[in-house]
Design a protein around this nucleic acid. Structure first.
Lengths: 203, 203
DNA sequence: ACCTTGTGAGACGTAGTGTCTCAAACTATA
DNA sequence: TATAGTTTGAGACACTACGTCTCACAAGGT
């Protein structure tokens, strides 16, 4: 919609968007997150978002015609750009990554949003794509840890990463989302030691 | 609402409810399931259900005032009353139970309904309770298998069942619901052998 | 100062919601 | 079969929400 191409001042943070648009976007992002955390995605309507954000209803429709656009927008900048360095030991790397995942899932106010996403991704291809991306970024650390271990020869080259990631991260999701049980340290430790025992005995 | 207590003919299936009510209940159950599978719980409104079931809108409101009541009703009879007998070997029992879970999650038209449930259970205590019950019944087989193994001395008496169940079933949920990847046999086999290796080496 | 563009307020028709009433149909029993 | 007690379906009703549109105004860029 914005046809402004030339960037005159390579400004600090925001892109070459109209400041008014940037304001709207930010306000809506915050509003959607608040609404989702308070009452679930079901409570997110253009009407509600406009009220919560203190902006006009028409403005919300202009930028995000569909309801799911609002959710996608709220999730848009949830990239986890964490710089990764291996400790040289698979067990240590996994522990660190799983604990990071544990922290994220235990405390992050984002979990409700992800659950809202899950519930809809089953029927909405666009949302499913976003979910896949978020999942990939959330488990990227685990994947890197395993890849590094393969390079070191600590794991066989044909080790199935996806399966392993599912076996490591799956139990966390199960506990948090399905069983509504706490993700305590003992639980995470058991997952790690179980897996390490398994690959070390087979080696 | 029905004050009919004395049961004259101990009839075959239905309780002592008015046949008209039984018809309504059944029709709504079917309609809700169809709608959820077709377009998700979001598509389930009293209006839609009435149309789909071919009954009056007011009737739907009478029986299920809230929208979630419709979901709960559709999930009400999903008990899995499967009679369980141990094969005498933990690995065999687990394989059977996990494969059952795999089949259920791969093919059952119920999975969409469960996902609809998950998405809302985070904010609705009543739904959360139902979800917990369904989860318990779905993993009852696994639990029985593990309990039997403890009785046989195949597992230590202080073995944490909830943790183990999360580690066995969690990866399946992860694959099916989050990763949208197929639950192939190789995957299930890896989960089982991994776990069996782990407990057998520690014994 | 100028022109451009996003915004907010509100009008508008449409569609869905939740409640209510009432005649008709159904059920169990005498 | 007749009768009394229930459930149902159809529709009326006020209300809210939806999605689109217009237009004056404010805020942005140059």
């Amino acid at each position: 919609m914005s046809h402004r191409r030339p960037v005159h001042h390579p400004t600090t943070s925001s892109d070459d968007v109209d400041p008014r648009v940037a304001r709207t976007r930010q306000a809506v992002r915050v509003a959607v997150r608040r609404l989702v955390q308070r009452a679930g995605f079901e409570a997110v309507s253009h009407q509600q978002v406009a009220t919560e954000a203190g902006i006009g209803r028409a403005t919300v429709y202009r930028h995000w015609p569909k309801r799911t656009d609002l959710l996608l927008h709220a999730l848009a900048d949830v990239e986890a750009p964490h710089d990764w360095r291996s400790s040289g030991d698979l067990a240590t790397d996994l522990a660190r990554e799983l604990e990071r995942l544990q922290r994220t899932m235990s405390s992050s106010p984002l979990v409700p949003e992800l659950i809202a996403l899950i519930g809809r991704a089953e029927w909405n291809p666009e949302l499913r794509e976003t979910q896949t991306e978020l999942l990939a970024s959330g488990t990227a650390g685990l994947r890197r840890a395993l890849e590094t271990a393969i390079e070191r020869g600590e794991l066989p080259a044909d080790h199935d990463l996806d399966t392993t990631i599912a076996r490591l991260a799956g139990p966390l999701f199960y506990r948090r989302v399905l069983a509504h049980a706490p993700l305590d340290d003992a639980f995470v430790t058991k997952i790690i030691t179980g897996y390490i025992d398994e690959v070390s005995t087979s080696a």
